[in-house]
Design a protein around this nucleic acid. Structure first.
Lengths: 241, 241
DNA sequence: TGACATGTCAAACAAATGTTTGAAACAGTG
DNA sequence: CACTGTTTCAAACATTTGTTTGACATGTCA
């Protein structure tokens, strides 16, 4: 029995007590891990922000790494529920509309400024410095997202197109969204007047979707024109020119 | 006598000596900084790999941070010279061709596997965790690159188009390239058969360039169709729907 | 050769950090 | 109240890490 007041019907939401300590630790840890990265984040900093003792992390979570994984799991679950990549659209909607909803949902998530706003930064860190947490991200979010986007793209392309092209097209679309997450610091240094928050989502989603749709439609009509002869399928050994 | 010929006119490129120590430290530091990040990289690790004493970093560079900045400066200079973003093309070449050269050059740089292959990773780190080094990157490479790409895009778009659109289009193009740098770990987990080295450059450059060109050309013809009414210029306050 | 500047090295230092510990505070139960 | 299990806390511990230090080696040059 980890909690003292189980026999009461009220949840222990007082401003102190074990459950509150746990919650405060998770909240503080998310911010600190995203701000500083796993290694550079210190449990002392986390505990200070949570108003808890240094030993609290080890008592409640075992060690720093298990706290990290728990933080990630909770934030992923909440953000996945808040931003479904179908944007709440039915599967029968036109592919163009579903693509726009996908892009809009992804951008909204990246520009979220709520409790878990730090998740984007934390995920960017994991992609550069993969740890066990990246596998959680892959199965919980990235693989399902890729699956969903692949369906949309296949609907927009002729059936004859190969899988490589579907993937490359998906990467092209996702990359345009993630750019504002991974390169936020660069964008704000290049264009200081460009707001990198939810107020930019509509404009960016429209831009990315329309540019990509035209790119895809053209691809459907003209299957790589003359360039197809210069390219090799992946897996083939390419020689330097 | 570790090196016999310092007093001669020959540069001290023997396998030991002060200059060689410096060189070995720079080489080792680049790899370690990119692998582990500035903070997590240890001078002991760097010195071990360089075959030097722990005190060598402080003796030759003052402190860890000045070593870091020196590493970055040297690698940037070498990579900037090796991969000019105009791809060696004259300014008079058609914009479509120059765009392809730009994308090809950027991808080649990201997939470089030479002495400074680690620079891409180090830059990705800086974008997530900006330090003084990011300013060096901005002035040495990113701002000139943005300038160059802007010229190409303006040539491809009607003169009447606003600057915001030029920037967004540039971001769309660059993002598709950087994706394979920042999200390399994710891509390789999604498609294990996709080679993320120079053998993929041709294919990726063709894909990104053609998709983007169609997107741009469509933008030139149809200026955002009905969607233009839903978007606001940056700087205007956007309301939630 | 002998003084001198330059590099190199092992050892030590001080600060930071994840974790442990033992005591104290607390709450619930008989 | 006494007893028990849970939670908190200050202090301590063991490592790691950037940097310093003083001795020693090396090459230069008068």
């Amino acid at each position: 029995m980890t909690e003292a007041a189980v026999h009461r019907s009220l949840p222990p939401r007082a401003s102190s007590g074990p459950a509150e300590t746990r919650r405060a630790l998770l909240a503080a840890a998310g911010a600190v891990f995203a701000e500083r990265g796993f290694r550079e984040a210190t449990v002392r900093d986390i505990c200070d922000r949570a108003g808890a003792n240094v030993a609290a992390v080890n008592y409640h979570f075992g060690d720093k790494e298990r706290l990290y994984l728990e933080v990630l799991r909770q934030a992923m679950a909440e953000m996945n529920a808040r931003y479904p990549f179908d944007g709440g659209l039915p599967r029968g909607a036109p592919a163009e509309v579903r693509l726009h909803a996908f892009v809009h949902s992804l951008l909204s998530r990246l520009f979220d400024n709520g409790e878990h706003a730090w998740l984007g930064r934390l995920m960017a860190r994991e992609m550069i410095d993969p740890s066990n947490a990246l596998e959680v991200m892959m199965t919980d979010r990235i693989r399902p997202m890729a699956e969903h986007l692949g369906e949309i793209i296949r609907e927009l392309l002729p059936a004859a197109v190969d899988e490589d092209t579907v993937w490359l097209t998906g990467f092209s679309i996702v990359s345009q969204c993630l750019f504002y997450n991974h390169c936020r610091s660069v964008v704000s240094r290049l264009r200081t007047d460009l707001p990198l928050d939810h107020s930019a989502v509509e404009r960016l989603a429209d831009h990315i979707t329309s540019l990509s749709l035209r790119g895809i439609r053209g691809l459907a009509k003209t299957p790589l024109s003359r360039r197809v002869s210069r390219t090799k399928p992946f897996g083939a050994v390419a020689r330097r020119r």
